[in-house]
């Protein structure tokens, strides 16, 4: 058990294992995304009330779900880096932030484009949408804060604190559709009780959610690998790797 944690703190081991995981996970993820998108776009029936615009659900919901889940990953890594000063946790936190920002942007953009034909407006200062916008700013804040400090340790501490404070926003996003009268529809997929979505629409949606989770993992591992190379540029293992011209 302890040897596992010891390995986890070892940059060359982490770099290598991330590469091995990516070799399998990335192709599987791309296939799942293509299959899920084609399934949702071409092989499902339109929604009886919204028509074909509902097909945006197959990217909107996965992006939003994983953007939220990514925040837990980032904040957890921030907590570990703050409490135990684990360097790899800091690498993980820095790797998660831009991906979270990208996915939150996708959720907001697709939501806006979906809103026009459905609600008649591109944007509304609705509780769900506004709290997602706050999530985007939290992610971007962490990205910007890293760049703002010359001192790496101070940057990592400030980012960890920001991401932990930002956790307040997460339950607000989840509960926003129940707490406030909102244009945004409540969740269709429920863990307890029956989902209010037809199974012919549910399966491609679940596939896309899984694929987006895998994509998050892939992008995060790739960011971590690049970050490790940069931080360890002066060490023997990186120099050996660069000399071999290995990719």
């Amino acid at each position: 058990m302890w040897s596992f944690f010891h390995k986890l703190g070892s940059p060359p081991w982490l770099y290598g294992i991330a590469g091995s995981i990516l070799r399998y996970l990335l192709p599987v993820t791309v296939i799942a995304l293509v299959v899920g998108a084609v399934w949702g776009l071409l092989f499902t029936a339109p929604d009886f009330r919204q028509g074909n615009s509902y097909r945006i659900i197959y990217i909107h919901v996965p992006a939003a779900v994983v953007a939220l889940a990514g925040y837990y990953v980032m904040a957890a890594a921030g907590a570990v880096s703050l409490i135990w000063r684990m360097k790899m946790a800091d690498v993980a936190m820095k790797a998660a932030a831009p991906i979270g920002a990208a996915l939150t942007f996708v959720a907001l953009f697709t939501g806006s484009v979906w809103g026009k034909p459905t609600w008649g407006t591109w944007w509304v200062w609705d509780a769900r949408i506004t709290s997602m916008l706050v999530l985007l700013f939290l992610y971007l804040g962490v990205v910007a804060l890293y760049e703002a400090f010359d001192n790496k340790e101070a940057a990592s501490k400030a980012c960890a604190v920001l991401s932990l404070v930002g956790m307040v926003n997460i339950p607000i996003i989840y509960k926003s559709v129940d707490w406030w009268y909102s244009l945004h529809q409540p969740a269709s997929i429920k863990f307890t009780g029956e989902s209010t979505i037809d199974s012919s629409m549910l399966y491609p949606l679940l596939l896309m959610i899984t694929a987006f989770y895998c994509l998050f993992a892939c992008a995060m591992l790739m960011n971590m690998r690049a970050e490790l190379l940069e931080r360890e540029a002066k060490t023997g293992w990186v120099r050996k790797l660069a000399a071999e011209g290995a990719h």
């Binding site: 074909n52 615009s53 996708v106």
Partner: peptide, 18 residues
């Protein structure tokens, strides 16, 4: 897509780019 093509396809294209 029965008039929704512009919305659906622009959402997908932007997502793919990101």
């Amino acid at each position: 897509m029965d008039g929704h093509g512009m919305f659906v396809w622009s959402a997908y294209v932007v997502t793919v780019i990101v």
